[in-house]
Amino acid sequence: MGEVVNVLVAVAVIVLVVRWVSSGSKDGNGAPSPSTVLGFRPKTVTPEMIDTIHAMFPDIPSDNIRYDLLRTGNVEQTSNKILERGFLPAPPPAYYTVYPRTPQPNAPAQPAATNPNAAAGPSKAKKQDNLITRYHLEARTSATSVGAEPEEAGRKAVWEDSAEKREASLRERKAQMILAARQRLLAQQAKEAEGAGP
């Protein structure tokens, strides 16, 4: 009699374990659970966590951020990973079966301007903001002629002794590259103007 009770208890335990395991792989609606699809038990992720990281790193897609947060559950760990690697890996295709793609936020709608010149103001400001004005090279552009290439544009950099000298050298090389590109653009525009002339 004792053996029969032991067998019945063992069968009941096995049935309960099988039910518990099979119920963990499906949600209440019959769909596979996120842990089954993703291959790990996802942590709780709030929209605030995603927004925090997205505000710090706007070039990282929201889906990549959410996927990493599902793994780590920690904003700091995900931020450190971005700082160390420079990117976050894209989620696998199975991720999109559980979490549909998030649409990229559109640019905020600007209020309609009654003055047509007011609407043209920001676009004019963007057009005027070029590399010459950004790096304050206006005085140097007037000093160079259209046909002349800046003399130091192709020169190899020399490793300077101090950080200040290296920074100044880098700024000068940047300026030379911008001026050289401007000279090439002006020369190309001059050739096109000659070719289009009567």
Rank of each mutant, 00 (worst) to 15 (best):
S79Q: 15
A112M: 14
K156G: 15
I65A: 05
K81A: 08
A118N: 05
V98C: 04
Q189V: 06
G39V: 02
Q128V: 09
G73N: 06
D51Q: 10
G86S: 00
G24L: 15
L186D: 14
N29H: 11
A168M: 15
K156T: 13
G147A: 12
Q104E: 12
Q128N: 12
E172V: 05
G2N: 06
K165C: 12
R66I: 02
E151L: 10
Y135E: 00
E192C: 10
R184L: 15
V17D: 13
I82H: 03
P111M: 13
G30K: 05
S142W: 04
L70T: 04
P122N: 01
V13R: 13
P58S: 01
R140C: 07
N74C: 10
A181N: 11
S35M: 09
Y95F: 15
L179G: 02
E194L: 15
L69P: 01
R140D: 14
S33H: 03
F87S: 11
L38G: 02
E151P: 08
S33Q: 04
N80A: 12
M56L: 09
S169C: 14
V11T: 09
G154D: 08
R66L: 07
R66C: 09
L16W: 09
M49F: 01
K43H: 12
A157N: 09
R41L: 14
I50A: 00
I53G: 00
I14G: 10
I178Q: 02
S25A: 15
A10M: 11
Y67A: 01
K126T: 04
N80M: 08
E194T: 14
P103E: 05
K156H: 13
I132P: 01
H54R: 12
D59M: 10
T144D: 11
G24Y: 13
E172P: 01
R19H: 09
N6G: 08
G197M: 12
A196V: 01
R155S: 11
R19A: 08
E76R: 13
A120G: 04
S79L: 04
R173A: 00
V37Y: 05
A175G: 06
V5L: 05
T141M: 04
D129G: 07
T97G: 06
P91G: 02
K127I: 02
Q104G: 03
L8M: 11
L70H: 10
D27M: 15
P47M: 02
E48Y: 12
R166Q: 07
L137A: 01
K43L: 08
N115G: 08
I53K: 06
P58L: 00
I14R: 14
A193I: 06
A31I: 12
N64R: 03
V146E: 02
P61V: 00
K127Q: 07
K43I: 02
P32H: 08
A55S: 06
V17L: 10
T97P: 05
G30W: 06
R166G: 05
A153D: 11
N117V: 10
R166T: 05
K43M: 15
D161S: 12
D68M: 10
V17C: 09
A118H: 04
G30N: 03
V4W: 12
D68Y: 00
F57Q: 02
V146N: 04
P198G: 12
W159C: 14
T114M: 14
G73H: 01
P108I: 09
V75F: 03
G154K: 09
K174Q: 08
T133G: 03
P108V: 11
K156D: 14
V17M: 07
I65T: 00
I178T: 03
M49Q: 04
E48Q: 12
